[in-house]
């Protein structure tokens, strides 16, 4: 995959930043507005798919190397599990107990603030990281795969 023409490359070099920022917005405001970790993570992955289609596979692998992507994937999963286990072991809670909301945010943090809702924004960030990295990895694996009869093409 060599990439596309110069017009598509120039336009997508501007558009990719907006798509990435929109994904981050969807993730961070997931506990206030519609959206959340999964949708925002898919938007982040789609900005990398735009790079992969416009510039070619090698450029996107230089942009986000595969070992770093797999480490981000694992970091998101570990962060989610760590939030769950903190809830279990902090005090006398249960699995996925919202300990920040109950212990620290019980007074002074209104419901519509950006910093509110305890562990829910943290979980959104963890899920967003995980979904973005794993969808990027899946699409990269699918795009490198060629059926046996097409091996001599490209």
């Amino acid at each position: 995959m060599k990439g596309m023409s110069i017009i598509i490359k120039t336009i997508s070099s501007w558009i990719k930043i907006l798509i990435f920022l929109f994904g981050i917005y969807i993730i961070i405001f997931g506990h206030l507005t519609p959206g959340g970790g999964f949708a925002g993570g898919v938007i982040l992955a789609s900005s990398y798919v735009l790079i992969m289609l416009a510039y070619g596979r090698d450029y996107s692998e230089k942009n986000l190397p595969l070992p770093i992507a797999s480490k981000l994937d694992s970091a998101g999963a570990l962060m989610f599990i760590a939030i769950a286990l903190f809830g279990l072991f902090y005090g006398a809670g249960s699995f996925f107990w919202n300990f920040i909301q109950v212990k620290f945010f019980a007074d002074g943090h209104a419901a519509f603030d950006l910093v509110s809702a305890g562990t829910i924004p943290l979980s959104n960030i963890a899920i967003g990281l995980k979904v973005a990295a794993s969808l990027f990895l899946v699409i990269f694996a699918l795009s490198t795969f060629r059926p046996a009869e097409n091996n001599d093409k490209e």
Binding site: G30, H31, H109, A111, F112, S116, A117, G118, I120
Partner: peptide, 12 residues
């Protein structure tokens, strides 16, 4: 939960 989005509050 303190979350304004009820869907987020339920799934997370």
């Amino acid at each position: 939960t303190g979350a304004a989005n009820i869907v987020s509050a339920v799934i997370l």
